[in-house]
Amino acid sequence: MFPEPKEGFTRRVGFLLLPGFSMNSFTFAMEPLRVANKVARKELYDCPVYSLDGENVEASNGLRLEVLGNLHEAGEPENIILCGGHNISAFESENLISWLRTLGRQGKIIGALYTASYYLAKAGLIDNTKCAVHWEYLSAFNETFPEIETSNELFEVSPKGFTCVGGTAGLDMMLNFISDLHGFELARMVADQFVHERIRDRREFQYFGLSARYSIQDQRLLRVIQIMEDHLEEPLGLEELSKIAGSSRRQLERMFSKQFNKSPARYYSELRLYRSRQLIMQTKMRIIEVALACGYNSSAHFSRCYRNFFGCTPLSERKLPAAGEQI
């Protein structure tokens, strides 16, 4: 992604920290560049940090970080990385979107960590490329930008920039970039500093497959769960699911009871409710739109099911303060 370095040239990689940014994602992306300078014993990278208004910015964990400048000054480095936080649409900034479009026209290389890909999408900068989205925000992103092809991989790279799911994926991404620019040996030495035994390729998935996630070996059960996850908007009936599993309805119920201590209908319902909660918390979709996207025909029925499961209505859930970031 980064152009080939010139001899003796220090590459400036600027980080723009959005309000409530993920400290974890920022650190894993910035620190490999600092450590590369240490290991190489020369300044290969300069990593200035900026905020929208030039004021110190608070991360999702409550810590405040000192910054060098504001949005206007953040456009000076040749490479810009946006660092997002827990809420995929925590704030709307026309200045940010306009600024991103200007940088795009100038040919700047722009990257996005964690949820910051939302703002690249709003600016129209990833229309023709795959976008890596953290699994927790994938549903909300797909509902907001159905025209953009998303990816389950750790990061996606294009000539104009990159998107990264955040967390430790930022470390692997930067190690790959260091390897491309300065050789694998330097990247390996940087990885050793982090006690990181293996540099993951971008094509690796964010999370384990269903079998590893649930410790399930029964292929019939795995097939049914995958079908459920793929059909949340238009739920299938138990008879149809039984046919997919190649078993009777009673056998399907026994499989779910043994594995999850709940009926397949209950498991399916909870999948849909958890998906709806992601959309409630991470998008500005209307309640009825969320209900329809998760297989409910009316907002009243959806709200009743939601309240029974989560202990609050969808509307009151949306008004609650964010519970904090998980990565």
Rank of each mutant, 00 (worst) to 15 (best):
L125R: 08
T129I: 11
I178L: 03
L171H: 04
E234G: 07
D218F: 11
P3T: 09
S303H: 03
T150Y: 10
L273N: 03
R203L: 12
A265L: 09
C83A: 11
L103Y: 01
R200F: 12
E289R: 00
L33N: 01
S269Q: 15
I288L: 12
L113Q: 00
P264Q: 07
A322Y: 14
Q106H: 09
V224M: 04
G295Y: 06
F260Y: 06
M285Y: 04
M1Q: 09
R220Q: 11
R101A: 03
A116F: 09
L96M: 02
F26Y: 11
N95R: 10
L33Q: 03
L292F: 13
M30Q: 14
M255E: 15
E317D: 13
I327E: 12
R223D: 09
T10H: 07
E73T: 02
R249F: 07
E147R: 13
N152Q: 15
A265C: 04
P19K: 04
G246S: 02
R304K: 13
S298M: 04
I81S: 06
A293G: 01
Y267M: 05
L241D: 05
Y296T: 00
E240Q: 10
K319H: 09
V165P: 01
I244E: 09
K319A: 14
C131H: 00
R220M: 05
V165L: 11
S215E: 12
L71N: 00
A112D: 07
D180T: 09
M189T: 07
A132G: 00
F155I: 06
